[in-house]
Amino acid sequence: MRPPTARLAAALALGAFALLAGCGGQGGLKSDGPAETAVGPVRLWPELPPASDPPADYGETDTERVPGITVRGADVRTVDPVAVVRAEVAADAGGDGMDERTARAVLACDTAPARCPVLSPYYRDLTGNGRDELIVGIRLPEQQVAVRVYLAERGGLTRVMSTVDQVISVELAGRDLIVRAASAGIPGYEYRTAWSWDRLQHSMLPARDEIVPVRPPSDAPRTAPPPTGGPATESPRAPSPRAEPAP
């Protein structure tokens, strides 16, 4: 009889042979061919000196304290969004291309609510502080929409984002506010900007800005034509879609 150590060594050798034989059979490891060589970024025109003057300021980081607005318990739901925009207009802090007619309509929202350009507000924690921020939209002429975000702090409100564009839609994705806008110079494309909270600037910044193609209607799936040559049959009606709150 072989000693136990010899039997154990023989068993391990047979097991290793079986594993190696299995790798070469069906379902074993296979090579995908040689890997592509990684290509790093190449700097063009390295002799160019760095820019010394900053570009024009577009006001992405501009913030504004809303005058005369008190927020109870740092809860933005306790304030009236129309009163917030009206306070900015009265203090001439509206900016963002708000025309005089829209400003007058904002001031008259109480007496003429049907013509009030301030849209229904939305609430979302965009800064990650555990509290909701106030998101306000304002209709402007020529299909323009002003989108503003307000942060409750120090007993009042601070406007931490403001932009105006010919808006297609405004969406919330996590803590990002995504604005889709029409492109006048590139037909078939749209601008898509994701605004994100920046702790260092203490404001919402356009962190990602891209131009994306819009699928033309011809790419939409087509329904099959109704059958011909037989008795007419009525197809079952699909249930009416329920109205879902935006976004």
Rank of each mutant, 00 (worst) to 15 (best):
A105S: 10
A108D: 15
A246V: 05
T102L: 04
R139G: 05
A232C: 08
Y122V: 05
A10I: 14
T5S: 15
G95W: 09
K30S: 11
P49L: 06
M98K: 01
R180M: 05
V145P: 00
W197C: 00
R7S: 10
Q143E: 11
R124K: 14
P241T: 06
D110L: 15
M204E: 09
L19Q: 12
P206D: 11
C109G: 15
A152D: 03
A184F: 06
V106S: 11
K30I: 05
V42C: 03
E171P: 03
F17P: 03
G229T: 12
R159A: 02
D176F: 02
E142C: 01
L107I: 07
P216D: 09
A6D: 14
D96N: 10
A152T: 02
P117L: 10
V106C: 10
I69D: 01
A246T: 13
N129S: 09
Y58V: 08
E234Q: 10
A93L: 12
L29T: 14
I135D: 00
A224R: 14
M161G: 10
I168P: 00
L20M: 11
P54F: 05
T102F: 04
A181P: 01
R148P: 01
D57R: 15
D57G: 11
V106A: 05
W45D: 13
V71F: 07
Q26H: 09
M1K: 15
D125W: 07
G28S: 06
P225T: 12
G230L: 14
G128L: 03
V147E: 00
M161V: 03
A181H: 02
V71T: 08
G24V: 04
E244L: 10
Y150V: 11
L19F: 08
R139N: 11
T111L: 14
A152H: 03
L134C: 11
I211K: 14
R175G: 04
A91L: 04
R65L: 11
P50Q: 02
R2A: 13
R65V: 15
V106R: 06
D92F: 02
A194Y: 09
L205Y: 01
R86H: 09
R7T: 13
L12R: 15
R199E: 07
D75S: 03
V82D: 07
G188Q: 00
T70F: 04
P34N: 06
Q166L: 07
P41S: 07
A184W: 08
A114Q: 14
P241A: 06
G156Q: 06
S31D: 12
V167C: 02
P225F: 03
G68K: 07
R131D: 03
A194C: 11
L157M: 02
W45L: 14
A108L: 13
T233S: 08
T163D: 03
L19E: 06
T70N: 02
L126P: 00
S196R: 13
K30W: 08
Q201K: 07
V82R: 12
I69T: 05
P227G: 12
V82N: 15
G97R: 00
